[in-house]
Structure formats: structure tokens, C-alpha cells
């Protein structure tokens, strides 16, 4: 009889131990989505806000596709015509009231379509990733974070990280040459990671893209900004759009045989074929609080039929990390714990 109880005990304890092991990630990389988002959110995360790129505003407009990519993909958004989107312009960092001009990265995120044509993209000002895996990315954010004791960044630790990660060179070259513009409208936003276009016969073509200011937007008169104003860029964009739509060209670069679409740290050579797929025309802005762009997660792996994800480990990791950030702010919003960032 005792042996029979023993069998039951072993089965039950074994099952509970197995569930516990899977739930706590035994045997997996120690860099999990939870740890990643913990670190991005910082010591005092802002409840109800995105843990990364917390500060931003909603936009709306149309992608006027010219159909130049229709032989490469069946995705609706690239067929000739006008495709409405909702989107978000944001700055890097976890602080929803951070000064616009101080952020190192600016972003443009777009959401198109519905059903199997839903497409989300989150583009940033850097053209490449500093590192090629989520583990290295985690180590880099740790190296770049202020020392908890001094409150300052540790230059030696940062140097040591870059020295041991030569793949960061392309990004550092870009950083050295980049000067932030005086407007969100005159930045270039990059897909960074590569994706596949899939045609009606199932053929794949790896691409990256950049959304670059159109000639009409870059030649329109500049609006003076007060760099001391924490919302300088948001206010500039709102003032600009009162006068004219903000227009970007959607420039798609085709990979060649020599390019590794799964490595986001290496820029593709300048001479790769680049196709102008149409224009992103932004016609409206609204504060993010209560607007549609705040309700959704711009997960770059929400792709329409006719596009697919590459095996790029950073691209794959973005999905789970964005989902964890989204889960946290959604829970906080549901529980009514969200902070008020009144001047957003």
C-alpha cells in the first residue's frame, strides 16, 4: 500500500516540478522577456506606459503605394493604392515626460490593415543594430546603464563592452556621423531588421527599408523650436502638420546573394537595388492618451500575408519583449494604476 502511495506521490511531485521548471525557464537562456523588460523599465517604471519608448504621440495618414513592389509581394499595403494607417512617433527611454531633444533614438511606428493583412512596423533612426543576439543586447544595456551606486554611467564598462563586441562598429560609426534633426519630420526611420517579401509563387526576397523625408517635406520652411522645451519636437510636429501633411518616401532595399538577412549589425552596401514603394503621408496627430496608437503593440512580427520574418535573432526577440511590456501596461491600465503624464 505504501508503495502505491509512493507512486502517486512521485507522479504528482514530478508533474508539479516539470510545470515549475518550464514556467521558470530552467534550461533556457537566462535573458528572458521579463528580465529584459524589468531592465528597460528601470527602477521606478512608469505604470501604464510602454517600458521602452514611453514618450510619444499618435499619428494617422495613408501610405500611397505606387505598386512598384507588387511583383515581389502579395501584401495589400504594397499594391498600388492608398492604405490608411494609425501610427506613433516616439523617443527612446522609459520616461513618458523626458525632454524630446535629449533622446538618442527617435521612432516611427505604423499599423496597417486588419485580419491577415494586419501589418505593424516599428522603425528607428539607427540603420543597424549594435549587436546580433538578445543576450548581447541585454549585456549592452547593462553596460550602458548608470551604475546603481554612483548614478552615473561607467565609461570603462562601456569601453570594455564595445571592445569585446566588434560587431557594434557599424552602429558606432552611424552614431558618430548622426546629428539629430530639429524635427521628427526630417528624420529617416529604418526597419533595421530584414524581412522577406513573398510573391504569389512563394518566392522570397529579403529586404530592409527606410522611411525618408520626401523632397517636399525636407524643403518646407523650418519651424523654430525652443530646445529648452521638453516637448519641443512634439509641438513642432503638431504645428507643422497644421500647415501641410508630412510626407516620407518608402524606400525598400533588396538584399543580394552576398547579404546576410539574419544579421542586423551589418549595413548592406550602397549599390544594392533600392525601390521607391510610395509615400507615407501623415495628415493628423493626437496625444497618445486614449488614442488608438496607445491601445496596440507595434510588434514588428505582426506581418501580413505576403511578408515573413527572417531568422534574425534580434527581430525574433523583439516580439516577446514587446509583448511583455504590453502586458504590463495593459494590466496597469485595466487596474487603473496608470500614471498621468499630463503634458503629453
Amino acid at each position: 500500500m505504501l508503495a502505491r502511495y509512493g507512486v502517486i506521490g512521485v507522479v504528482i511531485v514530478g508533474l508539479v516540478a516539470l510545470v515549475w521548471a518550464v514556467a521558470s525557464g530552467v534550461g533556457q537562456s537566462e535573458v528572458t522577456a521579463e528580465r529584459f523588460v524589468d531592465m528597460q523599465g528601470g527602477q521606478n517604471p512608469h505604470a501604464g506606459f510602454r517600458r521602452a519608448h514611453a514618450k510619444g504621440f499618435c499619428i494617422e495618414g495613408n501610405f500611397n503605394a505606387n505598386g512598384a513592389l507588387s511583383s515581389y509581394t502579395t501584401a495589400d499595403a504594397f499594391q498600388s493604392g492608398s492604405h490608411p494607417f494609425t501610427g506613433r512617433i516616439s523617443i527612446s527611454g522609459n520616461n513618458p515626460t523626458a525632454p524630446d531633444m535629449a533622446a538618442g533614438v527617435r521612432s516611427l511606428a505604423l499599423s496597417f490593415g486588419e485580419g491577415n493583412q494586419t501589418w505593424r512596423t516599428a522603425m528607428n533612426t539607427p540603420p543597424v543594430m549594435p549587436v546580433g543576439t538578445p543576450e548581447d543586447f541585454f549585456a549592452m544595456i547593462q553596460a550602458l546603464s548608470p551604475d546603481p551606486e554612483t548614478g552615473e554611467r561607467n565609461p570603462e564598462r562601456i569601453q570594455a563592452f564595445f571592445a569585446s563586441h566588434p560587431e557594434t562598429q557599424a552602429l558606432r560609426n552611424w552614431q558618430a556621423s548622426y546629428s539629430p534633426s530639429q524635427s521628427f519630420a526630417t528624420e529617416t526611420y529604418n526597419s533595421i531588421n530584414a524581412f522577406y517579401l513573398i510573391d504569389e509563387n512563394g518566392n522570397q526576397q529579403a529586404i530592409r527599408w527606410a522611411v525618408a523625408p520626401s523632397s517636399e517635406t525636407s524643403s518646407s520652411p523650418a519651424i523654430a523650436i525652443n530646445a529648452e522645451n521638453p516637448d519641443a519636437l512634439q509641438e513642432e510636429f503638431a504645428a507643422r502638420i497644421q500647415q501641410n501633411a508630412v510626407v516620407f518616401d518608402f524606400m525598400v532595399t533588396l538584399a543580394s546573394e552576398q547579404d546576410d538577412e539574419n544579421n542586423p549589425t551589418i549595413p548592406w552596401p550602397e549599390d544594392r537595388e533600392t525601390i521607391n514603394a510610395g509615400q507615407i503621408v501623415i495628415t493628423g496627430v493626437s496625444p497618445q492618451a486614449g488614442a488608438l496608437c496607445n491601445e496596440i503593440n507595434f510588434d514588428p512580427l505582426v506581418l501580413p500575408e505576403g511578408m515573413a520574418a527572417t531568422a534574425d535573432p534580434i527581430l525574433r526577440a523583439r516580439s516577446a519583449a514587446y509583448a511583455e511590456s504590453y502586458r504590463r501596461r495593459a494590466r496597469e491600465t485595466f487596474l487603473g494604476q496608470g500614471e498621468d503624464a499630463s503634458h503629453e
Binding site: V22, G25, Q28, S29, V31, T32, A33, E34, F36, P134, L301, A309, A311, P313, R316, A317, S319, A320, A321, A323, E324
Partner: peptide, 11 residues
């Protein structure tokens, strides 16, 4: 496992 993993198979 998928809610925490950052590995390529997660998707």
C-alpha cells in the same frame, strides 16, 4: 515557455 523566451522559435 513562449511568454518568457527571447529565442528564435518563440514566434
Amino acid at each position: 515557455s513562449m511568454v518568457q523566451s527571447l529565442q528564435t522559435w518563440q514566434v
